[in-house]
Write a protein that binds this DNA or RNA. Structure first.
Lengths: 344, 344
DNA sequence: CTGTTAGCGCTTTCAG
DNA sequence: CTGAAAGCGCTAACAG
């Protein structure tokens, strides 16, 4: 009896079935479920019993189709969920979205533009109320308001030339500048640079900050010591090995992201074990990396909180959705980064 | 002209509007969009022009409401996206789901049972075709088939007593057993244990494997050296500090997950810097941790691929959805773990 | 307090 | 080859 199984083969329970079971009309069920205003208490109880007996769940999709209603969905496209940084980012988005009663539709682009385009188009078709995108960096036609059905878009971590949308960025340039300056003030004069893909705006901005600080000390980057384009740990490790083998190795190395930092630390560690390096260079590491401070390699970390970045992206989006911010002008939010002290 | 803005305030473009614009009926638009069978070529072109002029996106929610159609959504509930392990897991799920043309609805439970319950109920309301859940570990009434509207469920990483569902697990017990055995064979006899929450089945299974190996060598775990319940890095670090200060410290320490491994390594590193420890204990670390092998602490890693676990969970789910597997019996998949060699 | 009607956007019949 | 009607599950608006 309590185990009633009245669903029509494969289908799910509907209001109508609940109504029949409780001996009322669909409207009474609907009303009961949305607070019970204008429904007699005993009828409400009868309805709730039916709901629980049949295992009824209101169909939110049908519900959001009615005029005035929205889907309660936010589309989030991320380049690489496998990078711990973006896991933290997604968490920040999710937590704020939950606060606003919204759910996350998540997609991973794998840094592939076509996939990003397809994903976003699908999200729009699924009636998301807004989009948060960490763009791969290619041309942004698919990010133009028309392609998005004019739903609000927030870009995160990277900006795209020609796309005018609210954007949350790290204070890349000034973080890199401050970190590099700190190392120059400590007396270093020969500083290498390890960076990820040049097409990623973040990488460019960090490189700029790096160069600015050098310039202020009357220095220019040594082309031999600038290695860019390493997108994963093995590539970063090879790049660092190359730097360590330089005839006049640098005394410090700027690493533009967490992948490069890990590769660099692996290379240093291996070289030290092999005896080919005794005094490792000082690292200026953009992004936090677990255990990096325990490696007995002098390191200056430029820290920032991925979760905070995600949370800010979500807040920016909701300020549009709730009509708190209506200007058609795009906002840019720069999340502060903090330059620590040289450790170890 | 190309910039037509015909949407009724706030609303989105509908088939009807596209039809009017192209001077055809809604049906012709619909047919064109689903392949163009039985539509004259020139009419198709006219429709496509209208679609692109108006920026039309087919409403997938309305579409999936029609008989026979499904939502194309998979609900994924994870305990902590901030843990890199679960980022990799989510990636594995996403990639396989994309292969099957499905999208991910993602929620983070934060190890809070109430949140998990609410999330899952919402997912069901949103017509997900299936669920993949890393359960927090509490009672599983909300995971019973009736509560789920009988949609397929796959549990991941942890199992729940009383819930019969397809499950993907790591080979926790045997991995822990093999790792511990290896360390005992290397001559260690005093081995500590650092674990996460006891209510998590994974933690229990790893502890069992650990004990099994000890027993085989005629040993029993020393209660003083078994510290469980550390859920984050700071707690793990404190636990390891306590172990290091023991009057008769262990020569090896089993760490049951990545949080405990990082905490332990931090504690060892600090103690070594402070001079209070000269010969660090050997670590048996369940879960891979970036940089752990470079810490100059002898370490045996019990490795496994979070992405592979996620992918397997998704495959198991789709085998149900596609009707390839219809038995009501729950399957358990154990993902192999690999025990490496003692490093450093 | 409760039920009937109508329609959200779409597509499967069934008629032309 | 094309269109009109009908209905997926739900709930405002309007009776009663």
């Amino acid at each position: 009896m309590g185990d009633a199984e009245p669903r029509t083969a494969g289908g799910r329970v509907t209001v109508k079935e609940v109504a029949d079971y409780a001996g009322v009309s669909a409207m009474t069920v609907s009303r009961t479920l949305s607070g019970g205003k204008n429904v007699r208490a005993d009828v409400q109880r009868r309805v709730m019993d039916a709901v629980s007996a049949l295992g009824y769940h209101r169909n939110e999709n049908a519900r959001s189709m009615r005029p005035g209603h929205t889907s309660g969905l936010i589309g989030v496209a991320i380049t690489n969920l496998g990078n711990p940084y973006y896991g933290g980012f997604a968490l920040g988005v999710e937590e704020v979205a939950a606060t606003y009663g919204r759910r996350i539709l998540l997609g991973n682009t794998g840094e592939v533009l076509a996939r990003e385009t397809q994903l976003i188009s699908d999200f729009v078709g699924r009636q998301v109320e807004g989009l948060i995108v960490v763009p791969t960096g290619g041309a942004g036609e698919h990010l133009q308001p028309r392609a998005l059905g004019h739903i609000p878009l927030v870009l995160a971590a990277r900006s795209i030339p020609g796309v005018s949308a609210d954007t949350v960025l790290l204070d890349d340039t000034s973080g890199a500048y401050e970190g590099t300056k700190r190392i120059l003030q400590a007396g270093h004069r020969r500083v290498a640079f390890l960076g990820n893909s040049v097409s990623v705006s973040t990488a460019t901005r960090r490189f700029e900050g790096f160069c600015q600080a050098l310039a202020e000390f009357g220095l220019a980057p040594d082309p031999d010591l600038v290695l860019r384009g390493q997108q994963d740990v093995p590539a970063a490790r090879r790049a660092m090995e190359q730097i360590l083998q330089h005839s006049a190795p640098p005394t410090a190395v700027f690493s533009a992201n967490n992948r490069n930092t890990i590769g660099a630390l692996e290379a240093i560690s291996a070289a030290r074990d092999a005896g080919s390096v005794t005094t490792p260079p000082t690292l200026i590491a953009f992004d936090d990396v677990e255990l990096a401070n325990q490696m007995n390699v002098p390191i200056l970390t430029i820290s920032h909180d991925p979760k905070a970045l995600g949370a800010e992206a979500a807040r920016m989006l909701f300020s549009r959705l709730d009509g708190d911010f209506t200007s058609s002008e795009a906002r840019i939010f720069n999340l502060a980064v903090s330059v620590g002290n040289i450790r170890s």
